[in-house]
Nucleic acid binder design. Structure first.
Lengths: 213, 213
DNA sequence: TAGATTGTTAATCGATTAACAATC
DNA sequence: TAGATTGTTAATCGATTAACAATC
């Protein structure tokens, strides 16, 4: 239907978008009306050039001589990020991380609504965590269809994560939030956002080991 | 004492190191003796050139005509990453994520030992989670000194995270694992590894919103 | 030795920064 | 209008890929 987008926006730009959104959100909270790329660049410790280049990937949101209207820009970036409308998600794996995600209320504030938690442990079935019902893993496919699920968080051991990934992709899921320490090799139209905590920790230990200069 | 390192290794290379380590670990488990950059590149879906370039930042680990000895390379990268020796850490903030980290045993397997969990809630003091003792936040400084803590994980709301960050930096901490949705502006010799789950989720919702091609 | 594959230099590609004309 | 700041083009910088001589 739409065909406006011409050139693909690079992944590094997209990675920076949520950070802009966070800073702009704070400015909105503080009732700041306008900001220039220069001011924002100082706050965020990036160059003003980069901010202007990044934003101009999506259109001219500013005004010469004035800068950017904070609320307007905030809403625009929110729309680009898709946080202007709610997204239903499920969590698969009721271990520590899975339960932590269900308990973490900040996501739902941003419109990410957890509709169910799935686990193979039959004992958990029928219970709930932070108001999220727990279901058996074999019900995933139907549940996805019936509840308009868009995002699946995988908080399972790696072998199980791979299996569940292919099941939910068959069910039409295009967005996977993967906490398992494994690369899910899925079709290119399925987007995987990895949260590899062990790798994150290793970068810290690298830094400790090499900070002796 | 040491002065061997000449040119600084770029951050993008370091980000890739834990992933190499993970793949090599799996090869070790499967008793694979040797691997060429070409074979590894096919597994990891990167170019062989990149692998060779990356590794050569740290020295020649391979052998012409043969490739790389898997176990040797695995150990070398482990050493570079600093996972050859244990690192003591504490977690500050006994909320969902803090508790999940304490419960997650994989870290200790890799030598990251959680020595304590800190929280302002006096009710929790003296209790423990997964064998990790809970202490009052005012004891942090002494605890760091007495227990040779190297890494501090911050799993607190953003204002508290900022406060605790400056306290632990005063106590000499050089590595912070930050889960709070805020940029901790700390001296350049302090390394911060951010885990911003909300930003990660927003990249997924971006992908959903822009996957209609 | 011949074949294979590294280590490394050179070429390409993409991302960042600088500069400035357009314009509010 | 004059001053400010964007949007955008051009210059620079760094990262990736290609190519190949060195060598096991």
């Amino acid at each position: 239907m739409e065909d406006k987008e011409e050139k693909k926006i690079s992944a590094v730009v997209i990675r920076r978008l949520p950070r802009y959104y966070r800073y702009l959100g704070e400015l909105v909270e503080n009732d700041v009306q306008r900001i220039s790329s220069k001011e924002l660049s100082e706050k965020m410790k990036v160059t003003a050039s980069q901010i202007r280049q990044d934003l101009n990937n999506f259109g001219g949101f500013g005004q010469q001589g004035y800068g950017y209207n904070v609320k307007y820009l905030y809403d625009k970036i929110g729309k680009i990020l898709g946080v202007n409308e709610p997204h239903n998600m499920i969590v698969v794996g009721a271990g520590n991380i899975g339960r932590a995600i269900c308990n973490y209320s900040d996501f739902s504030k941003r419109g990410f609504v957890i509709k169910g938690l799935f686990d193979n442990n039959k004992e958990l079935e029928g219970k709930e965590i932070a108001g999220v019902g727990i279901y058996s893993t074999d019900k995933i496919k139907d549940f996805i269809a019936e509840n308009h699920i868009e995002i699946v968080a995988l908080t399972l051991p790696k072998a199980a994560a791979k299996e569940v990934a292919s099941v939910v992709v068959e069910a039409g899921i295009k967005a996977i939030w993967n906490f398992a320490p494994v690369d899910l090799n899925l079709p290119p139209d399925v987007i995987v956002e990895n949260v590899h905590l062990s790798e994150s920790l290793m970068r810290l230990s690298y830094a400790i080991a090499n900070n002796k200069e």
